[in-house]
Amino acid sequence: MTAILQLRDVAKYFGGIRAVDGVSFDLEERQIVGLIGPNGSGKTTLINLISGVYKPDRGKILFRGEDITGLDPWEIYHKGIVRSFQVPRLFEKMLVVENVMVAHRNQKGENPLIAPIHSKWRDQEVEYARRSLQTIREFGLSRVRNNWATELSGGQMKLVEITRSMMSEPRVLLLDEPAAGVAPKLAREIFGHIVRIRDEYGLTFLIIEHRLDILFDYVERVLVMNYGELIYDGDPEGVYKDPRVIDAYLGE
């Protein structure tokens, strides 16, 4: 297996706080990896660092061997790494289908010089629309596709975020608590979709999740963070046996 995403001694400090303090690991292609740790252990900061929201103070991030450290979020997106947010960030005054349509890349009609001439982008728009609607259907969101984003339930919002991420044909998805605040049944279904798209499209996942009972049924590898450091990297079964993890996280 080849490493698709590599972190080398990545660190980020906020004032005196070591949010992420020298984290290194490799993500293998087609892996589903869980990232866990107590609140404030630096999990979300790590995702923000990989996705370009923050620039690391130290260390390197490599994607397929290419250095992507410090690139802007939109550049990271175009490389093929897409992230979701802890609290779903849908575009509120837009329909579900519009939310998905926005995510396509290289849209001709996004150029303000071409946009007013509708014939120049109509064909591409229709093609993208078909793909969007197909994916919306695959995620079981057809019934709400013409609803406003604000009319969805929390779980549906999470699903729209994942649907939307698929539009750029990404290689790596970074999901920040895809099942938070969602009923257990729907949570398992969300993870079912994750496994499905991994198998179908060969994606790689890094998933932050607090609900370990659900998470451990779907991931093959778990990373545990505490105080900005990586304290465990291995299979889910080993987590409960590792003394450092028990000490930092499970013993709380």
Partner: peptide, 23 residues
């Protein structure tokens, strides 16, 4: 047009728009 959609996306949530590749 898609540009109008892009504008609204940036308006509603600029961080999410950046994460979806919008400059």
């Amino acid at each position: 047009s898609p540009f109008g959609r892009l504008l609204k996306a940036v308006r509603d949530d600029d961080l999410a728009a950046m994460a979806l590749g919008k400059v």
